[in-house]
Design a protein around this nucleic acid. Structure first.
Length: 294
DNA sequence: AAGAACTCCTGTTGGC
DNA sequence: TGCCAACAGGAGTTCT
């Protein structure tokens, strides 16, 4: 579910709770998520203090005081909620979930020294957690092939054109390929393509000239990717298929989708009379306007 | 070797 | 109402 903006929002929500605090006790309610949890997971975490909470692509990285890194990925349905010592529950990063779901699919609970409980629930269990020594993080199977951070200075039209040169796949498939760009997912890829007026079906290689230089479309696409991610982070991410909470703790960006989920509706590009279409690429829905995205 | 299909898992939704 | 197929924000593994 969560793409880069949602993971970043969760990170910002958890950071003040976790950093500087220690795990007093960790409850592990099943042996695995998507993969088996590491050996002695709960024991290895207990007593460890969190020194920093970082994000790489869609991964959260809790740096521990023994040199290990608690690596966490939310998959499609992974969520954290915070139980304050006073009993008040809330979701960090404004991602809430129904209570019943939280109970049934709550797989791991981190009890902090100050009495706060950080609960991880994950209905479909596509998420993962692992413990990796900090110095081995880069070479870890999950990280060694990861692509560029799209919000970094290094993600430029020139960089993208070089990478896409000669690629026979679709531009949409290239955008969601984590080995190229790390953190973009289905929704924001659709939204970025729409903003840049680039067709998701366009041959990725056509975004570079024969000599590997960026085209105007490449530049527009890079700018659109950065803009949509930045705006979504500012809005606290997007909340889909979530129950509304009384405290209003949900992301807002879902209300600003221009194409995602708008099949059959009028294209929102000024001056365009097209209609948004849904097609399937790589087994996932792509929404776009055939009239103004070329 | 690149690219696409399949797979994991559970829940919701829409059509008949 | 029930049943069943399609779909859901991801990505590693297995095919061609």
């Amino acid at each position: 579910m969560p793409e880069l903006p949602e993971v970043e929002t969760v990170r910002r929500g958890l950071e003040p709770i976790l950093v500087g605090n220690a795990f007093a006790r960790v409850e592990q309610r099943r042996p695995d998520l998507r993969f088996p949890l590491p050996k002695h997971f709960a024991e290895r975490l207990s007593g460890r203090k969190v020194e920093a909470l970082d994000r790489r692509a869609k991964y959260l990285l809790a740096r521990l005081d023994d040199g290990e890194v608690l690596v966490m990925h939310l998959g499609m349905t992974g969520r954290f909620s915070i139980d304050r010592a006073n009993g008040e529950a809330s979701a960090p990063g404004r991602f809430a979930h129904p209570i019943a779901d939280a109970q049934k699919h709550e797989h791991i609970v981190f009890h902090l020294g100050d009495g706060t409980a950080v609960r991880y629930s994950d209905t479909r269990r596509f998420g993962l957690m692992d413990l990796v020594p900090a110095q081995k993080l880069e070479s870890h199977a999950l990280f060694k092939g990861l692509g560029i951070e799209p919000l970094s200075k290094s993600f430029t039209p020139k960089w993208l054109a070089q990478k896409l040169r000669g690629k026979a796949t679709s531009t949409k498939a290239a955008l969601v390929d984590q080995r190229l760009i790390a953190g973009l997912g289905n929704i924001y890829a659709c939204e970025a393509l729409f903003r840049a007026h680039v067709s998701p079906l366009r041959l990725a290689g056509s975004l570079a000239t024969r000599s590997g230089k960026p085209t105007a479309k490449t530049a527009a696409l890079v700018a659109a990717v950065k803009a949509v991610l930045e705006e979504a982070i500012k809005a606290g991410g997007s909340s889909l298929r979530d129950y509304k909470r009384a405290d209003g703790s949900l992301g807002d960006f879902q209300h600003r989708f221009k194409v995602y989920g708008r099949e059959g509706k009028k294209c929102l590009t000024i001056g365009c009379s097209g209609t948004v279409r849904r097609i399937v690429q790589g087994g996932r829905s792509t929404f776009y306007c055939p009239a103004c995205q070329r």
